[in-house]
């Protein structure tokens, strides 16, 4: 439960920092950049804590996917941005691509970790089942991709 809480915090911190970034660019640089730097550092840290027990593919997909979705909404609601139907479609397409790539790698990246299986069983049984098939573990950059 603690690790899922950390993941939720990481998502919230990411969204706040991106909103701070836009705020820094449009109105108040110092305050905006301060919030941005603080929040992205915290988000990074919380995410690195979360992946200790939640499989990386799952946590990355939630972190980046949910972040992307919420940030898109934040831009429209808080800053009055306009997204055309085509742009929304393009964002959705990238989101789908991101999920596909993430879960493709996750099979290899988390293969030899024993304990996330217990955690993941409750949430993503299908994913875990495939993870077990491919035991070859190779350390890659994708494991910590942001």
């Amino acid at each position: 439960m603690y690790y899922w809480f950390m993941l939720a915090l990481a998502v919230v911190a990411e969204v706040v920092s991106t909103v701070g970034m836009k705020y820094a660019a449009t109105s108040s640089p110092i305050f905006g950049y301060l919030v941005m730097a603080l929040m992205i550092s915290f988000s990074f840290y919380a995410f690195s804590r979360a992946v200790v027990h939640i499989p990386l593919a799952v946590s990355y997909a939630i972190w980046e996917g949910l972040g992307l979705f919420l940030i898109g909404i934040a831009g429209v609601v808080l800053f009055g941005e306009y997204l055309s139907l085509g742009e929304m479609f393009a964002i959705a397409l990238m989101l789908v691509g991101l999920l596909l790539v993430t879960f493709d790698k996750g099979k290899k990246a988390d293969a030899d970790e024993a304990f996330p299986v217990v955690q993941a069983n409750k949430h993503k049984p299908a994913q875990v089942a495939r993870m077990q098939v491919k035991p070859a573990h190779r350390s890659t950059l994708g494991e910590v991709a942001l």
Binding site: T18, V19, K22, E64, G67, L68, I71, G72, I73, A74, G75, V76, F79, E81, Y82, L83, E87, A90, I91, M94, L95, G97, L98, V101, T102, A145, L146
Partner: peptide
Amino acid sequence: PLGIAYSVWGGMGV
């Protein structure tokens, strides 16, 4: 716009 910049950034990161 924020949503566009961030999604392209995330996509390019992957």
